[in-house]
């Protein structure tokens, strides 16, 4: 039995808020690039605003992560699963950073400013350039699919621990107890 507690309330709040936000953003992104519906215009505007919020949140989250101790995985967990867990966690953080950044950059490369909830605009990071647009636009799409694949694996592994193994890995993030 591990003595380390689960995740702190701050960590859990950040995790679940971002989970809800990022999965919504990914699903919205996939559909809005195809949709010719009247809501598409507002959807794109919200996607940009919430994308900026997601960038702020991941920065806060990384700071919080650096300042807190991570609960130990169960001792009996095989090394290969430990490795897989840390690779996916690392990949998820990289995706959390690159998604909003590539989105911001692709907007600027198309010569557009990013408005945040109609409150302010963020500075332009690059000059308008069609080749930069292509690069950032394709990255935004590719990272989105990698992100979804990693989220799929993350959810699968968490539920496997929570439902099948019942070893406290999932409750560390759900209730903060192990």
């Amino acid at each position: 039995m591990s003595v380390t507690k689960g995740y702190s309330a701050v960590s859990r709040t950040l995790h679940w808020t971002m989970a809800l936000l990022l999965i919504s953003m990914l699903f919205l992104g996939l559909s809005m690039v195809q949709s010719l519906a009247v809501w598409q215009v507002e959807a794109v505007a919200l996607h940009k605003s919430f994308g900026f919020l997601a960038l702020v949140l991941v920065i806060i989250r990384l700071i919080n992560k650096a300042l807190s101790t991570k609960p130990e995985l169960p001792n009996e967990l095989p090394a290969i699963q430990r490795l897989a867990a840390s690779v996916i966690h690392c990949g998820l953080y990289i995706a959390m950073l690159l998604m909003p950044l590539s989105g911001w950059l692709m907007q600027n490369a198309d010569g557009r400013v990013v408005h945040v909830f109609g409150l302010f605009t963020v500075p332009n990071l690059v000059e308008a350039d069609i080749k930069y647009f292509a690069l950032f636009r394709e990255l935004h799409g590719i990272i989105a699919w990698l992100f979804l694949a990693m989220i799929f694996m993350h959810i699968s592994a968490a539920l496997y621990h929570g439902l099948i193994k019942q070893d406290g890995v999932m409750s560390a993030m759900l209730t903060g107890k192990k």
Binding site: M32, Q34, S35, L36, A37, W39, Q40, V41, V44
Partner: peptide, 9 residues
């Protein structure tokens, strides 16, 4: 609806 479809296209 036509105007709003133009952005995505």
């Amino acid at each position: 609806p036509i105007l709003r479809a133009r952005g995505a296209a």
